[in-house]
Design a protein around this nucleic acid. Sequence first.
DNA 1: TTGCTAAGCGGAGGGGCCTCCGGTACGTTG
DNA 2: CAACGTACCGGAGGCCCCTCCGCTTAGCAA
Lengths: 191, 191
Amino acid sequence: MNSLPSKPTRKDAVDNRDRILTVAREAFAASTAASLTGIAKKAGVGIGTLYRHFPTREALILELYRHDIQQLIDLAPALLAENPPLTALRLWFDEVARYGRLKYGVAEVIHAATNAGVDDEYYGPFVAAIGVLVDAGAAEGSLKPGLDPEDVLLQLSVLWRIDPARDGEARAARVLGLIIDGLRAAPPASG
Amino acid sequence: MNSLPSKPTRKDAVDNRDRILTVAREAFAASTAASLTGIAKKAGVGIGTLYRHFPTREALILELYRHDIQQLIDLAPALLAENPPLTALRLWFDEVARYGRLKYGVAEVIHAATNAGVDDEYYGPFVAAIGVLVDAGAAEGSLKPGLDPEDVLLQLSVLWRIDPARDGEARAARVLGLIIDGLRAAPPASG
DNA sequence: TTGCTAAGCGGAGGGGCCTCCGGTACGTTG
DNA sequence: CAACGTACCGGAGGCCCCTCCGCTTAGCAA
């Protein structure tokens, strides 16, 4: 309902929020499984304060990576402006997969979060970004018409789940190819 | 390493194991989030005993649904014996999706489990079943040659994650269509 | 400055997870 | 039947999650 994440007015509240974020960034960089209790302690606030600012573990992590996510979303129209739709789609999917490989643990959380809420702050723009790409492809004839962006995101979410340690890059590329072939209106004429 | 799940020899151990399974079946039917502490208590065993028999929550759930999973795996060659490869593939995927819809919570766990272990007791046969299907399709020319069954399972795992409450059946059918199109060697000639 | 008040704090408490290891009793051997 | 070794039991303990609510204090108004 509120577009900005409820800016607290009191100075101490703002300070606490910032300190929590600083500590959390460090803690989650070390391990996504970092304990919230520990983060609260290191930030010098009560656990209750942490939970008031970030009602769930996911909310905290999403806040930390808000910029990354936004950049990913903004990239979609940018690519579309400079490439044919199918190429833009492919490049964007590549980038999504790359980010997942970079921040494996984070991606897991984002994935869970996007799966949970339907029209939340993060899921919505993501779907919208995909919508722009597939619509352009449909209009141009390279992608199937009438694709549901949510269906595509669902398929894409698989990329988040590829363990980068186990041949991640190659597997991601292969799966990406399969996904895109499934979205195309027609396959390559031969070979 | 051991093909059978380590049959305990002592009578009391067998009894405990059975009681745990009975209670757990009921508890997980009510909610996948059922507490292991509670199950142990209801089964009249210490929590330590439960963990000795089933080292993780997933192990316990997988044991409960072992039969379902095995049936799904056995279905693949059976369908292949009576249908062209592409049809068999489609029917089998349908069944996988249907099961996921039926036991949403359970499927989540199975998914997590299959994702974790590479050559464990459950993941291996699943991959093998898919391998048979895609090889048959490749040999006959309807599917791309050289598909990696693990890649296919990965894509398939998405079906486990469709919330059945939110238009699940229709979405599963759409996504399934996209996945299969991506696996095909060539699209239908027209329409 | 001095109240006042509600926004914000913080940690106790109830519950769950999982490990670890001293204790128990099963099955066996004589 | 007695005695024993070990396979198995069970729950205390340490840690974490998350909620709830009495207390504190920032910011404002007089």
